[in-house]
Design a binder for these strands. Structure first.
Lengths: 328, 328
DNA sequence: GAGTGATGTGTAATCGATTACACATATGAA
DNA sequence: TTCATATGTGTAATCGATTACACATCACTC
């Protein structure tokens, strides 16, 4: 491997000069600069990033922590983040917690030791230890999807979106609306969306049967099972179901279709996420577009902002859009 | 930031001893080891990866180069790779070429300068310069999805799979089979699959009309447009269409449904990829499962093998499975 | 009691870059 | 002519780890 010393020797200058030529810092005469550049070109020399970042404390790498790597949401986020960051010459170091809480903390520390210049975390929960760790590492940091106090966060307006969905259903005449959510440890998806549903129902004086409220785990399967449990109680059947993710909504639809229910005539279904799939299932699924890619871009921009020193902790609320389709 | 020197001072030993305790290399007395460990615990010290990899030439990072970051295939691959690699303590550095050929070469070199310990490339084409670059960087290397001569490659059996799809259609009685492919610069998806289709048709003496063979660009939209062009010629309409990706197949289905064709009665449709979507569109799509996650795992394992010195260039052919559903 | 190998620790060089500081020369102003 | 400033280049310290080598003890063996 050629090093800066090799280049220096070949150009008959000191490595200081080579460094200066490469980084456009300080004075270098035009002749020498050209010579160095041509040698660099020839040899295909690339500076060692380890050496560089050992010295400068910057690595040009941004760490991303995701709860699950292989979801549509995740890949849209990463796509958006990458779009913005790669244009500025940053690379992405990816980690996947596989939904294990303690890994979030572990990875933050790991990324720090890797000298990443900043971290974007898409968390599934909030707890003090996690918050403390974020404080401790003292790096440019952006939370994506959860609102951490004191930390720059790009969030979706979960509450408003879910209110809108519920209202929309009510407006269309559905009065017996069931709900398939996820565990409330997840403030955004679990808690906010459920509260929005419950409070909107209450506001319209619409009763919510206990067995109408089910909890899944994001999977299609769990949506299927949730719907099944809801319908197994025959005396108070809902005429609509609001699932908090598209996948669970599609699971619910599967069960309904299997049992011969007509969608939306017998039971209407809504999801959240605007997955590609939602458009092509039949009937096509009414859902909410959270503009994940834009959220990723937003997060990346917020991080770049911090990298450039403006480290005011900001709260950015990403917009959303209801997509009305045939399942309602 | 605490360094190894700080730890050494606090433990009243030299940094050599600290290093030895941390890496379990050489002798360290039990007393001293315990003392060091407890201090490390307390301070939350983590060694600087830059310093370490500057010295050792290993970074614990594997670079991945993908043509597109936000596709189902990509996220399954990354998922598989990550599963295997993270268990061995490796991190993933992700890059996205956005389908630009020259970026593949650029990123290989970039990753090298970042001291990655190995590279997994999911290429969309093969050319000499690329091959040369792979040779030049002289790193553990695995190609995923394309067969590079002299390079360990994990590939799908594109030819056999496409033969199977075509045969299956023929067996079911379809004799006028159209085809929606992609550009032949992509040896695996563009060339192999098309050849398999053409040759299988020929083998059964089934004619292939010129206008039955269309080229898309992986997008749903391009499948829709391809199908449209195929059907606009009214004198020789096909009764089946073989799209080489699920997304294009779904695009084709959209057009067919829109125009009032019954699937599969009027026109049967098949795809490749076993996307989640394929199961939930209606009718559900007949497709081929390429076991992308397993391919990712396989690639990661092959890379680990090379990392451990067994650097025989291997060819691994991943298996596949036809999934028969209602679109045929 | 001398020799030998195992155990435990430290000294200092090294990896490949950046950068503070010093020094030399050229240029222009006074 | 002289001094200040701009330009161009080099010396050497530094970042935080690893590791070859040296040295000191200790326990055994013969």
């Amino acid at each position: 491997m050629t090093t800066i010393n090799d280049i220096a020797k070949m150009a008959n200058v000191s490595r200081t000069t080579v460094s200066r030529a490469l980084n456009n810092s300080g004075y270098v005469s035009e002749d020498v600069r050209k010579k160095i550049m041509s040698i660099v070109e020839e040899t295909g020399y690339m500076p060692s990033v380890s050496a560089k970042s050992l010295r400068t404390k910057r690595s040009g790498v941004i760490g991303i922590i995701l709860p699950r790597i292989s979801t549509e949401t995740a890949s849209r986020l990463v796509n958006g983040i990458n779009d913005v960051l790669s244009k500025q010459g940053f690379q992405i170091l990816l980690t996947d917690t596989e939904l294990q809480k303690d890994k979030e903390i572990e990875y933050i520390r790991l990324l720090k030791s890797r000298q990443v210049d900043g971290i974007i975390l898409s968390a599934t929960n909030i707890n003090d230890e996690l918050l403390q760790t974020i404080q401790d590492v003292d790096l440019p940091f952006v939370s994506l999807g959860q609102d951490f106090p004191g930390v720059t966060s790009v969030v979706y307006d979960d509450y408003a979106a879910s209110v809108d969905v519920t209202n929309m259903l009510i407006q269309k005449g559905y009065d017996k609306i069931a709900f398939i959510g996820v565990g409330e440890e997840d403030p955004s998806v679990g808690y906010e969306r459920k509260q929005a549903y419950l409070q909107t129902m209450a506001k319209h004086d619409l009763p919510v049967q206990d067995h109408w409220v089910e909890t899944g785990d994001f999977s299609i399967e769990s949506g299927y099972e949730g719907m099944k449990r809801i319908l197994q109680n025959h005396d108070a059947q809902p005429n609509a179901v609001f699932a908090v993710t598209d996948r669970m909504a599609i699971g619910a639809m599967e069960y309904l279709k299997e049992q011969g229910y007509k969608i939306p005539e017998d039971v209407a279904v809504t999801g959240i996420g605007a997955s590609v799939m939602s458009k092509y299932v039949s009937p096509s699924l009414t859902t909410v577009d959270y503009f994940n890619k834009e959220a990723g871009e937003e997060a990346a921009r917020a991080l770049l902002g911090q990298l450039q020193g403006k480290n005011t902790s900001k709260k950015i609320k990403n917009s959303y859009r209801l997509i009305l389709r045939d399942s309602v």
